[in-house]
Design a protein around this nucleic acid. Structure first.
Length: 852
RNA sequence: GCCCCUGUGGCGGAAUUGGUAGACGCGACAGAUUCAAAAUCUGUUGUCCUUAGGGCGUGCCUGUUCGAGUCAGGCCAGGGGCACCA
């Protein structure tokens, strides 16, 4: 027998699937659909092992559902806009488009070598005008419905690169690449009204019962709903009011000061004539936005000299401060300070020697002054006039009613979620299709002028936005009046691209952004698979987009992803040389003494922790090399085995070798034992005896269990059951017609259930078994339920809760008989001795517990 | 600080959801085959006691129960999310 040659066999089946267009899918309302989607990759140049894990999982689901009779959509595309292409352009003098398309070509080739059941006819790239032009149409539709607006807002501005930075690109208050001190600047930014959908996005989470609980929780926290009150404090000796937001109206009697944000209109008004305030505002703007900077920043403020009138206490005046810990973006940008019952207010009051009074009694009824720390917990209200003796929650309600009565405030729901700023001062992104006209203002581009394509002749040697530098691109005519006008040079955040690609996949070449007929059939995505790192932004933005597209009539659903699965990372041991340099795993070998040494120098290697694969630590393995060495099937098998899919898995060579061994073993087994099996389509014998029947039982039990495991995405347990079944098969010895038939049945089931995970090997064996139809087009085998239940069961017998023996009894045996058999068991008798039996618990088919 | 998740052999992990803890894989050990090795195959492998057999054992402590890895309460450790959010 020839050894299994993965390289040849895998190439053979990949071209068979391709030539037969096996995985091309059409909308067909007569069939049940199933949409499997893995998060599409950024075309960085090569696939990494995390992609292998992600796409293998999706592929198992896709192939499995296909075999189960579903019309499966399983597409692939490229999240192709983004900064790395511009960096490559600057550093390597290669155009972003050229760089990106070359990367796509290479990654496509690598993905194809994995044998994924993808419909490549639906491939799309977000950097292609055929995609981003439709995105511009969506943008115009959103604009028309008021879902997008332009607003001056504060951004992180890198003065060296002359660009806006996202929060995560600001490290310790400095630009991640330039290292320049980041400034807060006010810029005109395009914004999506996602915050209008806060409540809907929050409520929608309730319906997502096939999402991981923790992702829903993260989104819930991110949306950050809180309920409280808006209260108007009259500014003393002025006619206007200061509106604040609070979740603790019950502590109003503990108020000792007011604080407003540096960007609050009141502050800005005062800063014009008060240099102390103006200086402080400038200082706040310089303050870094990193977590660390915020953590360390002291609570500071400046007294404005103004006072506010307390809403409940006649004549009580509260000093108004500008404070660095009050954020303009949250609530109303102003607060009242209650130092007794809020940590920040306490810190602030301590620094500026403001009154700290207690209005909530402590858990033990303490009513004394708060000297070292505020009290945040529940309790009875004190020192608060009409609120006295109420519990915190009751007092909140009472305070709000009183405020409403006085016309000074009302109950309010507040959300942490802010609008999504989508403007980026970058070249390699989707141009925002609007025009700025001196006469008409900001005018949307005409739909027939779309796509507004990116110019090709751009330079990246100057800081700032290359689109803005382009000599002619932005010069245009106003779509409204026809006068000379300027194009918007901002491009869209790349999160926009990934917020609707799942819908475009249904009909990637349609004239409309999405074709209703197709999305109505395919969407929502039945199973979405990707990394937990997208738990908030990408998934929340996509959920918003679905709602927005529903408003424009493009789709008719709210939730884009009915099922979500977040897979774990792939980790690897780390290695360092004696001099402390990181080493690649392939440069580390084991010497004769069993020690890890460097392959070239022979120097002993220091083994470090198991960590997420990263280029900087060099603990990476290259999927292309793995596939070349072990074959795609073995790589797929290994990433699915051992670890539960939602947890991190460690890549080890031993594990990959193990997968390879199983592949060889199965191949060899079918080859060597096929002659003992019945012919394809041989008549089923009327009776099955001992061995043959036992094998059939195992076959159907395995089939049922593996089917269930795949359905639940528990690939590791499915594989464990297949290993057990392999063992059963190798031990099977039987002659006779029934044995031969049972063996064929077992082999067919084995090949079928291995199919979604090792598709090439399975096709090869399927063909060997004599089938003329390929496995990918063959149905999943059917479980015969009668064969999955045994006639007898092994029951554990406990004495006083400790296992003392087991008995074999017929299934569903009469309780009294089971009890008698249990009591007759030798070891059980020994443990009962002459003690009195107080009670016997019999759980049918499970356990007997004898209490003495 | 707030919220959440996870702790099971040397390792990755199973456990029908309260019913025989450690399936399956890796590693290790022993044996078969081989001139030898690789590959392959067969066994053993939680721990302690000398075996039949038994004691102990799912991070720690308490509890509920005939029975707890699983439920409850309190700790400890590791990981993740959010964070001057009023």
């Amino acid at each position: 027998m020839s050894r299994y040659n993965a390289r040849e066999v895998e190439a053979k089946w990949q071209s068979t699937w391709q030539n037969r267009n096996t995985f091309e899918t059409k909308t067909d309302t007569s069939k049940p659909k199933y949409y499997v989607l893995e998060m599409f990759p950024y075309p960085s140049g090569n696939i990494h092992i995390g992609h292998v894990r992600n796409y293998t999982m999706g592929d198992v689901v896709a192939r499995f559902k296909r075999a189960r009779g579903f019309n499966v959509l399983h597409p692939m595309g490229w999240d192709a806009f983004g900064l790395p292409a511009e960096n490559a352009a600057r550093d390597k003098k290669v155009h972003p488009a050229e760089w990106t398309y070359a990367n796509i070509a290479n990654m496509r080739k690598e993905l194809k070598s994995m044998g994924l059941s993808l419909d490549w006819s639906k491939e799309l790239a977000t950097c292609h005008p055929g995609y981003y032009g439709k995105q511009q149409k969506l943008f115009l539709d959103f604009l028309d419905k008021g879902l997008v607006y332009r607003k001056e807002s504060w951004v992180n501005w890198d003065p060296v690169d002359m660009t806006v930075l996202a929060n995560e690109q600001v490290i310790d208050g400095k630009g991640w690449r330039s290292g320049a001190l980041v400034e807060k600047r006010k810029l005109n930014q395009w914004m999506f009204r996602i915050s209008d959908y806060s409540e809907e996005l929050l409520e929608g989470l309730q319906t997502l019962d096939r999402w991981p609980e923790r992702v829903r929780l993260m989104q819930e926290n991110w949306i950050g709903k809180s309920s409280g009150a808006r209260v108007n404090f009259k500014i003393s000796d002025r006619s206007d009011h200061l509106e604040i937001y609070t979740t603790r109206p019950d502590t109003l009697y503990g108020a000792s000061f007011m604080a407003v944000a540096a960007d609050h209109p009141l502050t800005q008004e005062l800063a014009k004539s008060n240099t102390a305030i103006a200086d402080f505002v400038a200082e706040c703007h310089r303050m870094g936005t990193s977590e660390e900077a915020i953590e360390k920043a002291e609570k500071k403020g400046v007294d404005t000299g103004l006072f506010a009138d307390h809403p409940f206490i006649e004549g009580k005046k509260l000093p108004i401060y500008v404070a660095n810990f009050v954020l303009m973006e949250y609530g109303t940008g102003a607060i009242f300070g209650c130092p007794g019952h809020d940590q920040r207010d306490f810190d602030f009051a301590t620094k500026y020697k403001l009154e700290i009074s207690r209005v909530v009694a402590g858990p033990g009824g303490e009513e004394g002054p708060l000297e070292t720390e505020p009290y945040i917990g529940p309790g009875k209200i004190i020192n608060s006039d009409f609120l006295n003796d109420l519990e915190v929650e009751e007092a909140k309600k009472a305070a709000i009613s009183k405020l409403e009565e006085l016309g000074l405030g009302s109950e309010t729901i507040n959300y942490r979620l802010r609008d999504w700023g989508l403007s980026r001062q970058r070249y390699w992104g989707c141009p925002i299709p609007v025009v700025h006209c001196d006469k008409c203002g900001t005018v949307p581009e005409k739909a027939e002028n779309l796509p507004i394509e990116l110019p090709e002749d751009v330079t990246f040697d100057k800081p700032g936005n290359p689109l803005d530098h382009h000599p002619t691109w932005k010069q245009t005519k106003c779509p409204s009046c026809g006068a000379d006008a300027v194009r918007e040079t901002d491009t869209m955040d790349t999160f926009v691209d990934s917020s609707w690609y799942f819908a475009r996949f249904c009909s990637p070449r349609a004239d409309e952004a999405v074709s209703r007929e197709d999305v109505d059939y395919w969407l929502p995505v039945d199973q979405y698979i990707g990394g937990i790192e997208h738990a908030i932004l990408h998934l929340l933005y996509s959920r918003f987009f679905s709602r927005a597209m529903k408003v424009t009539g493009a789709v008719d659903f709210e939730e884009p992803f009915a099922g979500l699965f977040t897979q774990g990372m792939v980790t690897h041991e780390t290695y360092k040389s004696q001099s402390g340099e990181w080493l690649f795993p392939q440069d580390v070998i084991t010497n004769d003494a069993g020690e890890p040494v460097h392959i070239e120098t022979g120097e002993k290697v220091i083994i470090g922790g198991v960590e997420k694969m990263s280029k900087s630590k060099k603990n990476v393995v290259d999927p292309a090399e793995i596939i070349d060495k072990f074959g795609a099937d073995a790589a797929r098998w290994f990433v699915l085995s051992d670890s539960p899919p939602d947890r991190d898995m460690e890549w080890t060579d031993a594990g990959a070798t193990g997968a390879w061994r199983f592949k060889q073993r199965l191949y060899k087994f079918i080859h060597e034992n096929l002659e003992n099996a019945a012919d394809l389509n041989a008549d089923e014998p009327t009776e099955f005896s001992g061995e043959a029947l036992a094998l059939r039982r195992e076959t159907h039990k395995t089939l049922a269990s593996v089917t269930d495991s795949i359905e639940k995405l528990h690939f590791n347990t499915a594989i464990a059951r297949i290993y057990e079944f392999m063992k059963t098969l190798s031990e099977f010895r039987s002659t006779g017609e029934d044995g031969a038939w049972a063996l064929r049945e077992a082999m067919e089931v084995m090949v079928s259930i291995v199919g979604p995970m090792m598709p090439h090997l399975a096709e090869e064996l399927w063909e060997l078994l004599g089938h003329t139809e390929i496995l990918a087009d063959s149905p999943w085998p059917t479980v015969i339920d009668e064969l999955t239940v045994d006639d007898t069961v092994t029951i554990a017998v406990q004495v006083k809760g400790k296992l003392r023996g087991t008995i074999e009894v017929p299934k569903d045996e009469d309780k009294a008989k089971v009890e008698a058999m249990a009591l007759a068991e030798e070891n059980v008798k020994r443990f009962i001795g002459d003690a009195t039996i107080r009670k016997v618990i019999v759980v049918p088919n499970r356990i007997v517990n004898i209490v003495i």
